[in-house]
Amino acid sequence: MTRPPTAAQRRVIGAAEPVTGRLRGTEFQLAALVARGLAFRHPRPPHDHFLTPTGHRIREEAQPADTPAAPAAPPASGTTGVFAARVGGETETPAAGAARTREVHSAWTGLLELRRMTNTDGAMDRPCGWERTHLVQAAALALEAAGHRPEDGSGGGGGASGGYRVRATPQPEAVAVREPDGDALRACAATLEKAGWQVGEYTEPRTGTRYLLASPRRT
């Protein structure tokens, strides 16, 4: 088993860009992370360094969890310094307005760049490896970036206010998206399909509620 990263290496990992995992550090620090399998050097210019899935896990384990409603997603609090797309139903939500819009746009742009650099053919129209290991967060980012409204759980209304809610499912590589408004649900499906997800609409047998199952497209 490899040794755990040093305190200095953890600081470099913790300072990585939240969505893309792009790293900044000295050549020695970056090379040491690569040697431990926590980072990789991109083969295309400018040859930046990015966290591997193991590096991402170490980064996320160091962040305080504050949203048990979405166990598959990173923390959603605006106070942690970690960007997280809204998955719907958060009891504490980041501030809205122009600042949030800029954050979401920057995160989505960064994710598209991550697709370009990590998909073997440079494709930006289908999900990358990071999205497959962060299904809830990735689907929620695609929805929020397209302007869909997440469910607001801060008032304890149990979803009465409407809006999307993204949750993990027992199925591999699949998330469930719920939205009480039928037209809004179909709009969510269209957004996810455009973002490179395979989407199907289903009905819960007991309640008759319509919902989406979405999986990252591979080809």
Rank of each mutant, 00 (worst) to 15 (best):
T209P: 02
G89A: 00
L135F: 04
A98E: 14
R206W: 10
W130L: 07
E173M: 13
A65P: 10
R186D: 12
R206P: 07
L143C: 04
G182L: 11
Y164K: 04
T120K: 12
A69I: 08
V82F: 10
A142F: 00
A70D: 03
N119G: 01
C128D: 10
P127N: 00
A65Q: 11
A189S: 13
A139Q: 06
G157Y: 06
A195I: 01
A190G: 08
D125V: 11
G182S: 12
A140P: 09
A123F: 06
T118H: 01
G88N: 04
V175G: 03
G208P: 08
L111Y: 15
E179H: 06
D181N: 10
V175I: 05
A107M: 06
E204Y: 13
A195V: 00
G153L: 02
R115Q: 11
E131W: 02
L185A: 09
R206N: 09
R116W: 03
R167V: 13
V104D: 03
D121S: 12
D121Q: 06
A184H: 10
V166H: 01
E113Q: 15
T79I: 09
T93E: 14
G155P: 01
T120Y: 11
A85F: 07
R186K: 13
D152E: 01
R206D: 12
R210F: 05
T101G: 15
A174H: 04
E204V: 12
N119R: 04
W108Y: 10
P172I: 03
L141A: 03
R210Y: 05
G129N: 07
E131I: 09
Y211D: 03
E204G: 10
A140E: 07
Y164S: 04
